[in-house]
Amino acid sequence: MDEFLIRAFLAGLGVALVAGPLGCVVVWRRMAYFGDALAHGGVAGLALGVLIGLGPQPGVLIAGLLFALLLAFFERQSRLAGDTALGILSHSALAIGLIAAALVPALRNDLMGYLFGDLLAVSRIDLGWVWGGGAIVLAGLALLWRPLVAIAIDADLARVEGVAVDRVRLAFLVLVALAVAAAMKVVGVLLVGALLIIPAAAARNLARSPEGMAGWAALLGALAIGLGLAASLLYDLPTGPAVVAVAGILFLATLAVRRRP
């Protein structure tokens, strides 16, 4: 097999293994929209990062962290909270990013790649970002898992039982931001949100425990990467969208075998 194919699969696998468990928490906390917003913020970070010479990934990472802080702030100031505030942030960031991108000629060609990703063009350095960032995120998630599940069940109850709810929430948002930055080159900022949400939602139909759901989500995400990559090669489809489309089909399939409880 060609080396670039192996790299593509490994990069996709890295993203899926991280996005699955992370996405479960996103789904439990009903913040599905946050992944998209982060990605839109990532476009601004990407363009600004290149514009001021920091490079794309650091730009996305910084933008993501800023977004996480802003959102944590909104979550506390409940009057500002809700979809609307997030929507304003998210779309403004996307617009700023697209304007910044238009001002940087060098970026214009790459923009499509960053927006939709290109698994087949993953370099060794990109692979390092995905696995390095992914390992950090998974380690952080493992550390936070217990309090995250407790908060997802009931935040007040968790707080009375001694969980530092605000700090755990903020740490989780930082992990999501890190994951988006690491996954950006692979699936593209616009499709990262899909890999967070769809495998986790599909896993819900198969799992009986929070941990089982995280495992299924990672597995289904990996499956979507493998099948999407294959479809992309066979039929000459854009890889990122192919992966997301397969994930959507897998979700439909899990609906059919859904076990209730």
Partner: peptide
């Protein structure tokens, strides 16, 4: 409890979360 339907949880696991 405002339990999200998206969170699969048995009583055993719920009790362990405390």
């Amino acid at each position: 409890l405002a339990l999200a339907d998206a969170l699969p949880l048995t009583v055993r696991r719920f009790l362990a979360a405390g």
